[in-house]
Design a protein around this nucleic acid. Sequence first.
DNA 1: GTCTATAGGGAGATAGAC
DNA 2: GTCTATCTCCCTATAGAC
Lengths: 190, 190
Amino acid sequence: MKKSDTKKALLDAAEEAVRESGHDGFSYADLSNKVGIRKASIHYHFPGKADLLSSIMQRYRENLLKELAIINENTPKASDRLLSYISIYRSALKGGSALCLCVAFSIGQQTLDEQTREEISDFRKKIFDWLYNNFTLADKDGSISNLGNLKEETAGLISLVEGAQIGARFAHDMHYFDLSLNPFKKRLEN
Amino acid sequence: MKKSDTKKALLDAAEEAVRESGHDGFSYADLSNKVGIRKASIHYHFPGKADLLSSIMQRYRENLLKELAIINENTPKASDRLLSYISIYRSALKGGSALCLCVAFSIGQQTLDEQTREEISDFRKKIFDWLYNNFTLADKDGSISNLGNLKEETAGLISLVEGAQIGARFAHDMHYFDLSLNPFKKRLEN
DNA sequence: GTCTATAGGGAGATAGAC
DNA sequence: GTCTATCTCCCTATAGAC
């Protein structure tokens, strides 16, 4: 198999594993089974597990930030942009069996290498800024009711979405996510 | 040392470890160092790790449900009760280094034994009911503004508080918790 | 009750053949 | 690039002396 194909298969399998079981909840043996390659061979593509985890995070960050940029391009109203944000986190749940990669890494940060932790930290800041800018837009276009302090609204929405993911995965029930988000969604004018 | 004293020391050390590192983020060796007992001796008090984890959870559940009952006895206004609830989760953060036990177990549920998972699940339901009853009270005493659907409010507050814990611990910053909770707190009338 | 000693397994990682 | 074989380390758990 071509080097890049195996590498992608490993990244895909590892990302899925992290989102379902956490980064220390899967082993090279698990990965080996999923991809159909001996576990020693994984080290050819990623010398250590830290390299693998860092690569997953890098790829995820690039893709998601691109998605958010596209939302801004195509969606004029702030409330609609936030709805898109919420739906990204909703679909990441995969019916209640997985978390988005950012939440999965954030809850297991203690045993991560410094570099990956930095990447997550930087990523979280960028998400915060994107939301903050769109709450600022909402303050102008009036598409969200009862707006308070914009930094508080931003932190509150991130916490709400991440907490809803945790709860929904625990219960294996998407309904819990929707239930949690509804009070916020009712403030959005469509 | 008396049996019950060692047992309590083990429970205390294990609870702290779970809240800081997760239930598979600490070993009998870690516990052995903290308590000053050889790791083999731990098995005398708790035959397996599952027994230890289950005991921590049982103790925590009993204590917290007792606390919530006392809040109801001593605090007439719904908004004040919810403030107490929030402050329990806030102080559990220990400045951003730990989670409350319920969140710590909830995020690591995949590798828990069935019994402990059941205990957490049951505990979460009881927390939900306590909050739901107090949102119902708020609907009567008018101490929370803009009340929507009460189940949604309940799920939303749990998600908010749990997500705020995750974010605050990641950033090692209590401020993030306070920032996240402020929009909700502003709806409470004091 | 607590100890020493050790079993048994799984983790990530490396060497070297092909 | 992928393989087999092996290494080292750490985990939970048990046996048996004191």
